[in-house]
Simulated scan of single mutants.
Amino acid sequence: MKLAFESTGFRRLLDSLKTELAQDYLTDVAEHLEELRFRRGTLMTARIGPGNKGGGYALRRLEDKKLSWWQQLFASRPRDVYTFALHPRDDSGARALSEIRDDGISAAASIMAGVAEHVLAFFQQLRTELAFYLGCLNLEERLTGLQEGICFPLVEEMEGRRHSAKGLYDVCLALNMGRKVVDNDFDDEGQGLMIITGANQGGKSTFLRGIGLAQLMMQAGMFVPAERFSAGLCRSLFTHFKREEDAGMKSGKFDEEMSRMSEIADHVTRDGIGLFNESFAATNEREGSEIARQIVAGLREKGVRIFFVTHLYAFARSFWEHNRDMAVFLRAERREDMQRTFKVVTGEPLPTSFALDIYKRLFPDDTLTGTSAT
């Protein structure tokens, strides 16, 4: 049965199988391996060197003459043939012959070792490649069992700036929760800058992770966790998420943030993507907002697409008031009853992150002054 593959990867795999492990090649290898069993003995040549010392030992191929026992019995033998026999107890002679034999077959052994490594390396690489596809199949089966949607993305050109999705979710969260999770829709309208604000614990970080994972899966040639996903390829994808305090007290939290940002700046390239999650919040509101604004402006000038989750109101508001046409603004949804829907919707930045909601949920009987309600 003839199989037709449209995938460039599969066609390359089949071509490599034909080239690297052709039947003629495998047949030759099998014949050489059979001959190197030395079932008919070992034929070598040598020369006498200085001091009558042997050298130049080389393994020779035996003539492929298969004679019957009758022909072997009456076959004429060459005249100038000299033989010798070792005494069964001549250990030194046996060791000397063994060393001569090893010298003769060492070159052939090295060649066959290289061939074996070549074949083994091919199958090891093939195992790694097949493990990737098998992992994709297992992931698809798992997500389908959770009733989560998947799709093959629409891949745009490298210079494409539009980033959009319908039903996008964090695949890791779905796997950890073992159930269907809240998904989101978004469209950056080709602006290349998305600022996400809103309520604490409203799903902003989860939404940001979902975007990053979908981009990585798309560029790996996989399906993505969404009903529909469209994005341009990127040359680099970097993240700048907040971290816990340095337990070793080697540096302050803000120093650590700036150090990571400096390393990112050294490696970021045009047509890259940056995911920022509550970055530069370790300092005060005014300074953190100004630092974030300048860094975002510099990265945008370099052609980097930015997705920025922030509680820095001054930073988000400055873009809303002065550069609204250069960015898309999303906000984590919060109901009037303080409930989070974990949906991210279009909306202007608000001066509060509703942290008081969390306080009231954890301490329902307390007031902000710490007195108990009666």
Score class of each variant (00 low, 15 high):
Ile150Trp: 05
Asp365Val: 07
Gly51His: 14
Ala355Arg: 14
Lys253Pro: 00
Cys136Ala: 10
Asp64Cys: 03
Leu86Thr: 06
Leu59Arg: 09
Phe223Met: 08
Thr197Ser: 05
Asn176Gln: 14
Thr269Ala: 05
Leu330Asp: 01
Glu156Asp: 12
Thr346Asn: 10
Arg127Ile: 01
Lys65Pro: 03
Gly347His: 05
Ser110Ile: 10
Glu290Gln: 11
Phe315Met: 00
Lys250Leu: 14
Asp80Ser: 13
Ala332Arg: 01
Val309Pro: 00
Ile264Phe: 01
Pro50Tyr: 06
Lys242Leu: 03
Glu290Arg: 13
Asp103Trp: 06
Glu336Trp: 06
Ile105Trp: 02
Pro153Thr: 05
Pro225Cys: 03
Met217Asp: 02
Ala174Asp: 02
Glu257Leu: 00
Leu362Cys: 10
Phe123Gly: 10
Thr374Ser: 13
Leu14Trp: 08
Phe122Gly: 04
Arg162Gln: 15
Ala4Asp: 09
Arg228Ala: 14
Gly149Arg: 12
Ser106Gln: 08
Phe354Glu: 06
Glu301Val: 02
Thr310Arg: 00
Leu275Tyr: 01
Val296Ala: 11
Phe74Asn: 11
Ile150Gly: 04
Ala297Met: 08
Phe207Arg: 03
Cys234Arg: 10
Arg317Cys: 00
Glu244Ala: 12
Tyr25Asn: 09
Ala109Leu: 13
Val181Ala: 03
Met261Ala: 15
Arg179Gly: 06
Leu208Asp: 02
Glu159Thr: 09
Gly178Tyr: 10
Leu86Phe: 09
Ser205Thr: 15
Thr83Lys: 15
Gln72Gly: 05
Arg331Val: 05
Ser92Lys: 15
Gln72His: 09
Phe123Asp: 10
Leu312Trp: 03
Gly274Val: 06
Tyr82Gln: 13
Glu159Arg: 07
Glu156Met: 10
Thr346Pro: 01
Trp70Gln: 15
Ala46Phe: 15
Val155Arg: 10
Arg12Ile: 01
His32Leu: 15
